[in-house]
Amino acid sequence: MARPIRVVIAKPGLDGHDRGAKVIARALRDAGMEVIYTGLRQTPEQIVEVALQEDADVIGLSILSGAHNHICPRLVSLLREKGLGDVLVVVGGIIPDADVPQLEALGISGVFQPGTPMQAISRFIESRVQRGASAAT
């Protein structure tokens, strides 16, 4: 039996707009994934701890507040510290084009800007997680 992909969806930052996070959570569920929804105002420390306890394959961040350049580096370094460097990190939300290369250089695998079709996101996650799994065996 294939293990369903486990995704932690988190909405870091202080704004209260979690609609995008909920929409993506539903889309990933409909793509057959197990989505652990963690709610609003998550710190990178909280998100990493949840990913560890939930044995997540993927962390999906929804960031609309412009705080991505602050949150993402912190999250990536915490993941490495905890030995979770193999967890795939994707970010969706309002991310200026100019910031994308920097996030990718950090180790954020996918950056999805407004207008990205949901299927493109779920397909991206599927292809990356499967590749990771076959590399591990």
């Binding site: 369903p4 959570a25 539903r26 990933l28 569920r29 409909d30 793509a31 057959g32 994934m33 197990e34 989505v35 652990i36 929804y37 963690t38 709610g39 909280q46 949840v50």
Partner: peptide, 16 residues
């Protein structure tokens, strides 16, 4: 979900 085999697991929201 019996349709997709996926799930939304949201109980943690209340256990932060």
């Amino acid at each position: 979900s019996p349709i997709s085999g996926g799930a939304i697991l949201g109980d943690r929201v209340r256990m932060q």
